[in-house]
Amino acid sequence: MENKLQVSTSPHIWGGISVAKVMQYVILALMPAAIMSVYYFGFRSLLVMLVAVGSSVLFEYLWCKLTKRENTIGDYSAAVTGLILAMNLPPTIPYYMVVVGSFVAIVVAKEFFGGLGHNFINPALAGRAFLMASWLSEMTKWAQPRTRLPLFGKVDTISQVTPLAQLKAGEAVDISYLEMFFGNVGGCIGETCAAALLIGGLFLIYKRIITPIIPFTYIATVGLMSYIFSPSGFFKGDPWANILSGGLFLAAFFMATDYVTSPSTFKGQFIMGIFMGVITVIIRVYGGYPEGASYAVMLMNILTPLVEKATMPRIYGTKKQAGGKAQ
């Protein structure tokens, strides 16, 4: 009996929430938005999501096989990456492009840098950025919501003008805030329904998977900045249209909060949220694209190590003593 006793250092019990569980919660939190996208864009959007998730998981599996590493698809992180990538794609996108996007996300952005925990940039966003650079027109075709999209073959769509494009042109947005909130606008699969994203985001905060700091400072900064800066002049912006349109909620709750590429210090998260808000509005108002959320997130991903380093918490016991002398 004695020979069988295990010896290891303390602690001897583990009571956390596993990586797989965290990822499962994220997938669960994305479900409302996924369901709403099927409601608005039909089964084609479901198929895009399935292709993205399937190919992402497959690429991770193949990479593990190829490099003779332990299979890591069981941690669900590849599935999450695939799902978030799909959420960032228009429902009309050809399927092979989705597969290319998954490849860039999983193999190039994640595995080349050492796999989960070592990527410097959000893999899903890297995939999206690659597709944006390669097939801009396919990536910016917006289908009218509640139209039937064919599952296969060429998709003919009358491109809908998005609220963000209207804002960029300095025009008034022609749909109501309520419609924007519920997602009855053209856009990427997962980004249009702010209500569904909010439900998912609040669920993650409630479950303590993410802290509320980044999402709320980010959204609030976008509101404030877009009121101050707008194409029609200072203090003439439309903060609500800016908050509710485009991929802001998706970016704020699901991409900016990615553990690997966002600061884990509370102060750092504040800085992250504020900076992303500022960059987003700068791109939206002065930049070349109508939407700036994903680039704002990627830029701040790169700055994350610096932000963390600058905001390390004060270690217990290092308080300046009464004499002014640091201990």
Partner: peptide
């Protein structure tokens, strides 16, 4: 598992 995904 033995992985850090920097959740903090």
């Amino acid at each position: 598992t033995d992985v850090c995904f920097r959740c903090g």
